[in-house]
Amino acid sequence: MAFQHIIDDERCKGCGLCVQFCPKHVLEITDKVNAKGHFPVFQARPDDCIKCGICCTMCPDVAITIVETQDA
């Protein structure tokens, strides 16, 4: 059972709550602006991500989802 961490960077407003609460410090704010003028987050260290979903629960805009993927 594999999971994929997806950030919708058009929906993200770059508030940084996920960055602050990620237990593995995976996330950082990019310097690439999105359509609405926000700087969304991205997975700086994706391998460290344990898919715990804390970033999802902390995101006010439900911009982060984790989906189950078929094993490669």
């Binding site: 999971f3 940084g16 898919k51 979903g53 805009d61």
Partner: peptide, 30 residues
Amino acid sequence: MAKAFSRPKALSTTHTHYCPGCTHGIVHRL
């Protein structure tokens, strides 16, 4: 303990107008 996380059905996909970081969005989701 990885787990899936997705947008609840009752929550529309409209982008919210709330300020970045405002937890209205979290409560809406809950």
